[in-house]
Design a protein around this nucleic acid. Sequence first.
RNA 1: GCGCCAGUAGCUCAGCAGGAUAGAGCAACGGCCUUCUAAGCCGUAGGUCGGAGGUUCGAAUCCUCUCUGGCGUGCCA
Length: 552
Amino acid sequence: MLINIIRKKIWEGIKSIDLKSPPKSKIIVEYPKHKKFGDYATNIALSLSKKYKINPMTLAQKLAVSLSSDELFSKVNAEKPGFINFYISKKYLQNALKEINKQKVQYGSNLQIGKGKKVLIEFVSANPTGPLNVVNARAAAFGDSLANIFSALGFYVEREYYINDAGNQIDLLVESVESYLNIIANIDIEELDEGYKGEYIFDIAKQILEIEGPSFFNQTKTEKYKRIKDFALNSILIDQKRALDRFRVRFDNWISESELRQKGSIEDLLTYLSETGNIYDKDGAVWLSSSKFGDVKDRVIMRTDGSVTYIIPDLAYHITKYKRGFDKIIDILGPDHHGHIAKLKAGISILGYKASAMSFILLQQVNILANHKITKMSKREGNIITLQDLINEVGTDVARFFFLTRKPNTPLDFDIELAKKQSSENPVYYVQYAHARICSIKRMAISQGIKLHKFKKEYLMRLIHDTEIEIIRHLIKFPELIVHIGASNDVNLLTTYLTELASLFHSFYQKYKVINPKHKELSLARLYLCKAVRVVLFNGLNLLGISAPTKM
RNA sequence: GCGCCAGUAGCUCAGCAGGAUAGAGCAACGGCCUUCUAAGCCGUAGGUCGGAGGUUCGAAUCCUCUCUGGCGUGCCA
């Protein structure tokens, strides 16, 4: 990456100037906000000036002079307070296209970063009590794209979905279905007040009756419970998977809570916890001393009735993540799991695992706006907008892009009406259109006998206009951006980046003609530039899980 | 009460690995299709970055306080 090359050169420059001892501080190289300050800039002279008691400007000038002979730069300037601004030479930029077009789908990848380290990303993990909602959709888009980015950075990534198929909410689900069964069969007309109420519950009840017939009711209570539970869970999970599939999200692992419980992991965990001496009895319940490990207070882990609270199976589950040897464990959580993080971290520390290997990304809520008013959704009440609905309304590409333009921890108002109405003005189309345009140009070029295999690298000199150079400048930042996102999890920066690239390209398209049979060399050079833009648009969209159409 | 998140243009939001004149999209206004797709381009207008202090050569960005909104703070998951 260019940014690292520059860092290295600055470092060498510093050594060549006789400072008493070379500095240990990191060399920060950044993109200046304004073009007139060059392509890259460093504040190293400012940050070193204090330590060495030198005037920052003097130091900057010295460094600038020593670096300006490098052919990578057309100019190296020292500026006002003590910045050093680097202007990349046109020749370097022109030649950078070769690298992009050579690497193609690999461009932007950087396998050296992850070096095969194992990353586990758990996301969505919705309760199997109903269809996926819009927060789940946001999590799906975000988690999947983040996983794509980690893969591009050379990590070994697994996407994981944890199925909470045990606990109170499952009992409630079964009771809800049962009440509908009774209603359909005229055994009872009362709807369950506290139960889940969506149409899907009704459908499940109907299907059970269709399959089992009236003899269903002859079974014992426990038999019926098991029948309903198995059928309902299966049906809901299939539905969730189908929706995720349409959303282009595939999980590597589906981990079932009840299976974990069956394997005895809860008992093992409880035994281990009591051995560590971090649990105690109080008020007839068993408590975890989580407050000693950063939680705001101690938590009940076993109720007076002997059942365990949610934290225990979840902790048991998280231990498997460590045991499976992941170096980096990422949980993407919904807003309601906010209070859960401290407990989990405390538990992990108590058990002697490194809590620092875990990171939690909290997604804020998604409000659905209808008639410009927020509609409160509740799975219990069955009035949710599902992922399926969302895909039907706006499509996978739009929905994914929309979710990914926001950083995770800002709440997101999703105006369905607007998204539908403005679908032709949506930024995703803007980016996709740039891609489609390039494909269109390519088709036209071929039809006019201008073929890229006749391109020669000497033609690159013909790319001299600001707009052209500007595009290349942007293109070479792509790998740097992907690395940055891998470190910061700021997936939203990629959507911004692609929008900027599309904007530069549209501008170029408007200003210059690519195909001109009278100027074959120029045409081929521009075609080559287009190709590189297409590579980056394609790879970027691909990382976001969004299609790159060749025609629109 | 305590904790977390947010507060930036009329609206929705970027920017917050401290940097040099705070950005985009939508909405508004004015232009551009005989030429590779107008789902596009060019231009105009719009801001004391919630407020007050502090750290720094330098703060939208870091720290403290404060106001507003959301969420969490279950022997629910």
